[in-house]
Amino acid sequence: MQRMETDMRISVQHDDFDVAAEVAVLRGRDSRVGAVAVFVGTVREMNDSGSESISEPVSVQAMTLEHYPGMTEKALAKIVSDATHRFNILGATVIHRIGELKPLDQIVLVAVKSAHRGDAFDACRFIMDYLKTQAPFWKKETMAKGAHWVDARESDDEAAARWQLPSDR
């Protein structure tokens, strides 16, 4: 967990997070804030990923998230810092869980505050799109028939490319 000048909070944690509490902390007593955009990613039960080995949706029993300690926090801080330079935002919180998760569990929170909604919406989407291709997390799904690593999706690279950022820097 880090706090920086631009009111940035980054956390990589096993524990669940409370969206309302995080939004309250992000807003604080900052009366410049007119908008908070929040994205929450959750674990789906039905896998319909583009994995070539899976043609039919399969029920996911558990999802294990691995990361690269040391790099993850730096990569997330860089993504938020880039968003701060690109959009007129007042602060952001990014929380990403690791370890074993179950369907319905929360995985990731991105919350952004700004004076007006456009910057909050855009920065929130930018941070998620960029996180998907740049932050060192890997998902492993456990099904009845065994576990497999989730394949990266081309659509994620395309989403990041929308912001005219190289997906592999």
């Binding site: 990613g41 998230l65 990361h67 690269y68 040391g70 790099m71 730096k74 990569a75 990403h96 995985i107 990731v108 998620m128 996180l131 998907k132 291709t133 740049q134 932050a135 060192p136 997390f137 890997w138 998902k139 690593w149 989730v150 394949d151 990266a152 190289p166 592999d168 820097r169």
Partner: peptide, 29 residues
């Protein structure tokens, strides 16, 4: 990644004591 920074090219220079990580394309979020 070289010292926790995504590498962009195989031409990137490596120095003594560096930490080089190899991994599949990331799938977080």
């Amino acid at each position: 990644a070289i010292n926790h920074e995504m590498a962009t090219s195989t031409d990137a220079l490596v120095h003594a004591g560096d930490e080089i990580a190899f991994f599949p394309p990331v799938t977080g979020g």
